[in-house]
Design a protein around this nucleic acid. Sequence first.
DNA 1: CTGAAAGCGCTTACAG
DNA 2: CTGAAAGCGCTTACAG
Lengths: 360, 360
Amino acid sequence: MCAAERARAAAGMKGKATSFDIAHLAGVSQPTVSRALRGSPLVSEETRRRVQSAAEALGYKVDKNASNLRRQHSGTLALLLFEDPTADHSHINPFFLSMLGSITRASAQQGYDLLISFQQFSRDWHADFAGCKKADGIILLGYGDYQSHRDKLEKLVAQGTRFVRWGAVLPGQPGVSIGCDNFLGGRMVTGHLVEQGCRRIAFLGDATPHYPEFHERYRGYVEALRAAGLPVDETLRADAESTERAGYEATKTLLARDAAFDALFAASDLIAIGAMRALVEHGLGVPRDVALAGFDDIPVASFVRPALTTVLQDTGRAGELLVDHLLRLIHGRSAESMMLPVELKVRQSSLRMMRGRRAR
Amino acid sequence: MCAAERARAAAGMKGKATSFDIAHLAGVSQPTVSRALRGSPLVSEETRRRVQSAAEALGYKVDKNASNLRRQHSGTLALLLFEDPTADHSHINPFFLSMLGSITRASAQQGYDLLISFQQFSRDWHADFAGCKKADGIILLGYGDYQSHRDKLEKLVAQGTRFVRWGAVLPGQPGVSIGCDNFLGGRMVTGHLVEQGCRRIAFLGDATPHYPEFHERYRGYVEALRAAGLPVDETLRADAESTERAGYEATKTLLARDAAFDALFAASDLIAIGAMRALVEHGLGVPRDVALAGFDDIPVASFVRPALTTVLQDTGRAGELLVDHLLRLIHGRSAESMMLPVELKVRQSSLRMMRGRRAR
DNA sequence: CTGAAAGCGCTTACAG
DNA sequence: CTGAAAGCGCTTACAG
């Protein structure tokens, strides 16, 4: 039995203490307890102290359900992680894990709790969090097909649900989106591969508007090829969702096609790592025979051998911005979509000049 | 304006619909709405249908705050992630990330929401979740110093807070703990290194009772050495918390000590990866000059070169068990601490016989 | 099977 | 600066 329990037992109470118990102990009314604990300026310093020590003595905590009900808010943000239903369920994409970490931190810093939920895009999740007041706002995260599911976002807007979305920032999208400059990232990587002397650069990833982020990266790739006067060869493109397995298989497809390539730009690091495995199995050296680059800079990217050239998205900043923008919306202020800068991380996997410099 | 809004505007309502609105539309009393929606067997099939379609028409969702307040529960579990305050804050330990994924999935499967929060052990978090009824129970996760903070756990028990803890399973601990067989894991790895012909095996990690998991792994290491008739040399031990940086530095310390070693057992994969970098910088080949093994089998473990020998903890099963045991406690049933089996994953980093088999 | 009533534990306008 | 009163939106024993 701890001190608080003993004190309460002495006072003849059972169960958790309520604000009435504190009021009784402090010799004030129950509303005064509420005011004192919420830091209202209406309460005298001396009363506040009495209330506070009574609350501590009984181990009292404000009941969130009651408080939220009365105040009509929840002090909670919901993070919805959308996963491709076809993806391997045992591991979450490390990139989103990293985002999750920074979002958790950012919302804690702002005094909000974070509710986490995995969702399928197909399900009817749009009213599950804001509708029932479990959360004041929603953060949407995931490589998703926002084109087919645009109606869900529009429903959120129509409902007046506050939400922000991580993903491609494109004109005319419902709600607020925050994402990195995928187009620029794609152009930078491809430009770098061109500089390395690559001439037949393949693209791995679903380049349809159904995967807007990949699509933007692809557009950057095309732009860089154009700028270098290189043709865009459709046989050098293979679809892949963002998994290692898909990258592996897309590379096999490409190899089977017998269309020669000297570089591979994978739309994500996971795809790139799968590609690396397929290339090695096929007896091709990276970067000796094929230069390779990915996107995201997930933690493994620097640990694979050769270390993977990729595009860094600042997840720390992204998490802060997502929470920040969502809170603006919750507080009735305006928030604009925005695009974050990216950074090219050149590592060994794309450095064709390195050939022979190390005994590998 | 969506259909639900239009319907409600027609009915002259503003704001979210309540159970009274549904009652009105369905032509029943408000309590009947509540019963119908909660699936009470007292409601006739026909009434239920009327209520349900009214609820759908108005886009009604039960207000969780009100429902929780009345029912005195929250339908939510809290996951508290303890991080070493000295650790690098930009990345979360991948092992815990993996646990987080499986816990999220398991609690969703059981119909519970999951609240996530990062905590410092030193802070006064014990009443922050259960005390204020934000969560029905708590899951504790993190390489923590449970010895110094044992009083916190005891406070939880005294309060009657339902909680389960991931970590070392030792006799006499407050509450329910679930963890893997760290002792066996340590013994298996060390035994394997001995089999590979290693005779001077160093241990990297804080082996004090303050890190009970590492301590158990260390005890397994000692046991395996004893079984092989090898001495336990204190100069072959260097403290490290579970970060890459700490592993890097501990290895440097070891190297500076000038006590020869032919193998390194790191108490975690992160430590092992840091160690690998230090060894390479020092001109030592892995596994040629020094065999290396870690613990956890985080995703990078199979991607570093050479791939890292380690001990697999089944995070999927662990997450399920943590949630399962916590729900047992919440439902007033009993739950016992338990230990999960581990699996040795032999990869190249420890295969000294491999020397020369590949041109690396 | 259904309704009228009470109450979960707070917060906040209102009155003093 | 403080208290009495009302009410947030449900759920559930009680009565019929």
